[in-house]
Structures are given as structure tokens and as C-alpha cells.
Nucleic acid binder design. Sequence first.
RNA 1: GCUUCUGUAGCUCAGUGGUAGAGCACUCCCUUGGUAAGGGAGAGGUCAUCAGUUCGAACCUGAUCAGAAGCUCCA
Length: 649
Amino acid sequence: MHVFLPDGKQLDLPQGATALDAAQAIGPRLAQDALAATANGVLTDLQTPLPEGAEISLITKKNPGQAQSVFRHSLGHAMSQAVGEYYERKGYPRNAVKRGVGPSIENGFYQDFDLPEPLGEEELPEIEKIMREIIGRGLDITRSEVSKAQALEQFGFDPYKVELISALPDDESITFYTQGEYVDLCRGPHFPNTGKLPTAFKLTSTSGAYWRGNEKNPILQRVYGVAFASQKELDEYLERLEEAKRRDHRKLGRELELFTIDPLVGKGLPLWLPNGTVLREELAAFLKEQQFQRGYQGVITPNIGNLELYKTSGHYQNYSDSNFSPITVDDEQYMLKPMNCPHHVRIYDSKPRSYRDLPVRLAEFGTVYRYEQSGELNGLTRVRGFTQDDAHIFCRTDQLKKEFLDVLDLTVLVLRTFGMNDVRFRVGTRDPADEKYVGDAANWQLAEDGIIQAVEEVGLPYSIEPGDAAFYGPKLDFVVKDVLGREWQLGTIQVDYNLPERFDISYVGEDGQDHRPVMIHRAPFGSLERFVGILIEHYAGDFPLWLAPRQIAIVPIADRHNAYAEELRAELHKAGLRAEVDDTSNRMQAKVRNAELSKIPMILVVGDKEQEARQVSTRERWPDGHRERKGVGFDELKAELLERYKSRS
RNA sequence: GCUUCUGUAGCUCAGUGGUAGAGCACUCCCUUGGUAAGGGAGAGGUCAUCAGUUCGAACCUGAUCAGAAGCUCCA
């Protein structure tokens, strides 16, 4: 057989040759240093036979980072072996530890176990120690192929492995990887020897995970680890985790007094404190302005509705698990509103509509309630009661594209306003095999094509995810990444032919006949709660002036400056700016410090000099940096702040 | 909802079976200062809740409630 090297040179090798054979053919030194390889761009190890005619490239200890997923996977095996030894040292028989899957993942690896007794996080350093021992032993990691029958025989003691092996086709040979006394069923690839594995790893956490990800299956213990080619990369990663902790909206939300969650009120039901309310109302005002410009009309609907309403819309049937239970009043049943759309449909239908009236754009900051599983609740980002910046556009089919593009434009404007650049557009389409979707296939096709066409027209990068649609129509979601790399769904746009059908709404066309309108559901923020949660982390609490709940702190140097400070405060307040005077008996340094810790963007220091000349000295913290200015004229500064406020910059 | 872990003052945390502590914040007094902590005094807790074990429980056991990480779910 032959393979090709990166320089295009052809290398002739015996049949069934591996990357190691190729390395040896080039030189003994390379064979010594080789860790893994790629064949036709796919990572492989040194022991797997190469495909005929492959373009290969060897990865050596000079650039182990290229084989990250390989050594992470191998470290996963080392961890798995270490856990086995740990339990053996505790006196359990070797086969007491059973194993689920253990892949490499972003930044590291995990392994699922069925353990004879739970493993606590405080035991992880001990496991790490054994892992380092295993690396120190320099065990060869050898690949072997066996038949399905042999595999079943060897792993007969482990029901999880038996299940995995049984699922493989009968004629397929199954690969094992062995290092010392540890053998695991594994497709590979792996490093050639435990001694060549990087030591820049750390076991981070343990948790439960359902076998094969199914809620109905038993739960296994999962141990997570992170690993990098160098200690520097590991340190940087751990530093990023620390940064994420510092930015955590739950921590900042408490420190900056933005919101609180009180068990007596109910879990998942956040209380907006005065500071958080300012922030939220600024967001709402911003969007209302935009919507006014774009011809939306405001509506207001109640927080509960007759069960029949949600039966008509289908929300009751389709989301029975995540609705709050109905309330019986007299002999009727009511439900907490899980969605605003049914109410808006009824508003549309409250009078006859002409084709001339369309599009009708009904907007509401509507609060909805959904019964989220208790384990899902998380600060502001996952709650049971939240307010959507919801709107429904009822239009003719010939208007759909323009309306959709306008909504897309609005959403992009929103994201840009907050400097959210790491955004992914996700088109959720119907999975034809799933039966939860309502409406006929032709309408679905129409709606899905329309979305994809619009996104392409705007030239946004997008991915299509089948099965991600709402039950009534496909959707376009905006997914942003936070500092930790976690993805959050923010805004959404959905095209819906089905609700108009279910509610039998219509308009009178040019021809005098009844026609069915199309609906667009859209929420650029998604939910105010989640959006604010993400904004807090996005800005790390250092909000731009227009969003900062506390915008200006005036620091009088001594008590005799309090009156001047108060005079400035009143003027700023009159101009619509949020200013306060720190007239505590603290020293000026302490007042400055407290204002800094409260992340107030503009601190005005006033003393004798300032008072005489109607000036202030400043200390400013803006998203683009901090600065100080001395002897600034007050009126000039006020104008500057107002300009900054009004322009939302 | 499931698995593991956690719950002590407003916040951050110490306290391994013998009647509860620190720092910050808070209140009062002194201090009146030039860009990140001036000094002193005081107040504040059924140790999440309930039950059990014990002569005795913040500490051990169980249940409940709440939180965290992950899994599953998200119109």
C-alpha cells in the first residue's frame, strides 16, 4: 500500500501499515517522538491501520496541541483506570466498578461510572494522584481487535458495556485499548503510552448523568476533567473559570442589588429590586421606541386565561408537563398564561379585518408562567415567571418576507446595541418523524423555506437544526455565547401558519373573500429576565451609562461641600439623570471606593476649588476604559452626560 | 424531576457533642479630608425547618425546604 506525506511525497508501506510504521519508514527519531497522526484530515493513532492512499501527517511532542482530543480521551482512560484502582484500594473487587461512556469533550473529558459507593469531589485530588502514578508507570497503550462474542465474554460483568457491544453489528470487529491491567472497549484513537500524556489536567467535578442520556435510565456518576497540552493553557482556562465566577449574574445581582429570589415568594420567581427595575425599564423603553418607529401597537392582556383558550391554541395539550396546573373557578378552569400569542390572536379577532389593515403588529411586555423542573432553575436565566418582549405580526402572505426581514433587522440592531458579537443563528425546523407538530406539511415547508431565504438574503451565518421547531411552526433563534462558552438562547422569530388556522382568523381580501393571515411571533430580547441576566455577565456589572441603575455619585470632600453637591444632584436629577450624593461621614477616599465598588460609572468629586468655579473633578469608568478629569465645568459635563445617555452609548 | 454536594449575622466565612465567633456592612460618637478602607463604641443569630439519638446537638441520623454543579427538559 502507499500513503502521501504533507509534502506530497508518496510513501510505500506493507499492507495494513499504521502511522507508526509510516513514521519508522521516515526515521527512528520520528517514530520515537510521534504521538498521533491525521489521515485525510481525521485524527487517528499510531496503531490503527491507515486507509490506502491516505494523506497522512504525524503529530509529535513538538505540537501535541494538534492531538488535543486524542490525549483528552486517553486521559479519560487514565482517570477511569485510576478510579478502578481507587476502589480496589478501598477493598472492593476489581469488577465492582462498572463503566458507561467516556469521551473527550471541549476542554477535557469525562467518564461515567456505576460505583459501589458515591465519589465525592473532595476525593478527586486522590484520583488525580493515582492518574499521575499511571502516567509515571509509562504503560504502553495497545490496540486490539476482537470479535463481538469475545467482547461480550470479556465484559460480561458490566451490563453497560454489554449493552454497548450488543448494539454493534455482528460482523464488525470490536477494538479494545489496554494499558497495564486496564482494558476498555473503545474506538480510539489514543496516545501510544501513558508516559507521553500531558500532565496539565485537573479533575473538576462530579455529577450524575443518565445512562445514555435518557431520563428513564439509571443515573451514573460522571467525573469531569479538563486537560491541555501545556500548563499555561490549563492555567488560562482555570483563570477563565474564575472570571466567569466573578461575572456570575447571581453574585453581581446581589452585590449591585438588582434582583433577589425569596423562597417565601417562590423559587424561580425573581423579585426585581429598585436598581434592577431601572435597568429593565431602560431596556423596555429602548425597545418600545424602536417598535413605535416600526408601526407596532401596544396591547395588554391578563396573566391567566380560560383553559379553553389554551386548548384551542394547543399549548395545553403540547406542554402539559410544563404548565402550572389549572385553577378551578366556579365551574370553569383557568390556567396561568404560558404564552401571550393566544391572547393576541383573540385581540386580532376582536373586530373584522380588511387586507388594508394588515400587517397588524401587536406588542406586549407580557409576563408568562411556566412550570420548569426545579433542577433547571438558575438565577434570572431560567425562571418560572418571566416577561417576554413579545409581539405578534398578522400579515398577508405577500407581506411575510418584508415583515420577517424587518424583525430580523430589529433583532440585529438589538444585539449590536449591546455589543453582542458572538451570535449564532439557529433555524429550528420540523422533524417529520416527530408527531408533536401540528398543521399540514405544505405550510411547514412554506414557513421553513421563508425563514431560510430571509436569513440568506441578510447574509447571516446560520445552522439548521431539525427537531428544534416550536409545535406550531419553525423558528429562528439567536444564540449568544457567554464568557464561559455556554450558549444562551435570547431572541426568537417564528413563522406560524397554524395558530391562525386553529383560531380560524381571517381578513377580507381585495376580492371580498375571507383569507387566512400568517403570524410572526417574535421577541428580540426573549425574556427580560434572561436578557438582563446575560447582560450582567456580558458587562460584568459595568453597565454603560444609559443602563447603569446608579449613574452618578457626587462625593463632597468635606461636610461644607454637601450643599453644593446637593445642588448639582438636583440639577442632574431634573435633567433626567440618576445622581446621588454621598454625605456620609466617611473620608473622601472611602466614598470614592464605595462608588467604585458599586460600579457607578461617573464619580464627581467636589471640594473648595470646584465649588468656587462651579466645576467638578471626575473619575469615570466606561466600557472602553477608566479616566479622571480635573476642573470640568459642571454645565458642560451635564450636557456631555445627557448626550451620552440619550445616544445610549 | 434525577445524582452528588451545600445551608452558621445583610455579605464572606471560622467553629468535629459541653449553652455561638471574625471581617465587612449597619447604628451612634469622634474625625472634615483632594481620588479604592480614619478611629472608637454598639446592635445584630431558635446555627434553614421539623423530628429523632444523647445527660447534653450548630456538630450524629432521618424527613422537609432552599441553593450549587451536572443530567434530562425549555412554546
